[in-house]
Design a protein around this nucleic acid. Structure first.
Lengths: 232, 232
DNA sequence: GACCGGAAATGGTCTGAGGACTTACGCTTC
DNA sequence: GAAGCGTAAGTCCTCAGACCATTTCCGGTC
């Protein structure tokens, strides 16, 4: 087996076997090299691999540690790769988001949480009164994120967040011919979701969320916008 | 900015900017080092990071390439990290699987595909006639995988597959007091799913799939099995 | 034209050295 | 005695150079 792969397997097994639990500290690099039988370069490449996946963390001057192994945190690491997926693949991912967020919205509607309703109402008020693309994206994320969080499953929140982040790289809300029509439809979609949550109607909430995201998919398919450079 | 991070950002931007599309070849390492202003070690660690995420691939003796950037392939890379998540987190993930696979099963039921039904029936026949834990897991995976594939969204198939693979690390089907009861319930659950698909009833299919996976969640919560070592 | 062997290109691994950051400890000071 | 501070040890980070392993390509041979 190749050196880096051997180191990778060794590190993974130290965690998988339970020898090192969440947040545990690894031995220093020289010791690990000796234990695994590879050079420091190979070991470090293996460490970087697992760090990229959110499984371990290196802290300069301190040591190398197992991460908290929190599923939401690990899923969030996907944004590094998901953000590079071309539009075709993003549409596949949006179906995942539609299904998951529809479910989370239904869960949120099933709960009795006046605070959530007030916060969502506030977000929508601000959202409806702005035409700034950056602010629209920010408030939209806040709205959906609050609902998913209320849904109760952090993993779902993280996953939908990653996908939404990728979708946000495409400029739907760009000044142009369709801007006003799109913005109005989007605003109405948000209101429909909030109404369903306010009336404690999970089925209506699921439908409204599903329709709202399906609408986004349609716009992406129709407009085929190009990804924009990173925001400031 | 640290050297490795600088290299990482540079590589990502080469892809994000469209300068290098799917399957494109990177310049040789020495050239990249020069271009990015970092040493070869730092560059290689950055390359390993992106390789771990399924974004790029190094081929010994040939070169370094952008991957196909296929969402399903990228999601499959998650299994490396998901397999290390403790039971608590796995239960959160199983809710994701339940929702997604329920959706995919409904989609499969909505299609007219006699081939699928025949194949699923064959799998279930074999599944019902074995008590070998390894074979049970294999056939179970084949059953669910065939349904998700028929659902039509490869991303969903990959995601549910990753989560199912993690669940499979826990020995539910272990010879013991409850083995027979659990096996029978599981078999009935599979039949219910196949029946719903055969009768082209998406709603029933979604319900059956959801109930089947919810049952798995209950078993995991109740039995709290320990992860088993890797299979041969 | 097909096969084969060697040379070139390229990533993989190892070693050694020095730098940068964090942490802990002992000292000083109040 | 407690707080602040500086030093030293521990640890990861980066660089440089050399050599190995694999793939690819090209020319020669049959």
């Amino acid at each position: 087996m190749a050196a880096t792969d051997k180191a990778l397997a060794g590190l993974r097994q130290m965690i998988a076997s339970g020898q090192l639990g969440p947040r545990a500290k690894f031995p220093p690099e020289p010791e690990l090299c000796d234990h695994l039988g590879v050079s420091r370069s190979s070991l470090r490449e293996a460490v970087r691999s697992l760090a990229a996946l959110g499984v371990i963390e290196s802290r300069h001057g301190s040591g190398t540690y197992v991460s908290a192994l929190d599923p939401a945190a690990i899923i969030s690491r996907f944004s590094l790769s998901v953000e590079l997926i071309p539009l075709e693949g993003v549409l596949e991912l949006l179906e995942v988001r539609r299904v998951l967020e529809s479910h989370a919205t239904a869960s949120a509607a099933a709960r009795q949480d006046p605070d959530l309703e007030a916060r969502l109402g506030d977000i929508l008020d601000r959202l409806e009164s702005t035409t700034d693309a950056i602010e629209i994206q920010f408030l939209d994320a806040e709205f959906h994120n609050a609902i998913c969080t209320a849904g109760g499953n952090p993993t779902v929140t993280a996953l939908t967040g990653v996908i939404r982040g990728r979708g946000g790289h495409y400029r739907i809300f760009e000044p142009g011919a369709d801007f006003d029509a799109i913005k109005q439809t989007s605003d109405r979609g948000h209101r429909a979701i909030l109404d369903a949550i306010s009336t404690r109607d999970p089925a209506a909430a699921a439908t409204a969320a599903s329709a709202h995201i399906a609408q986004t998919e349609l716009w992406l398919r129709a407009l085929r916008p190009v990804p924009r450079p990173d925001l400031p």
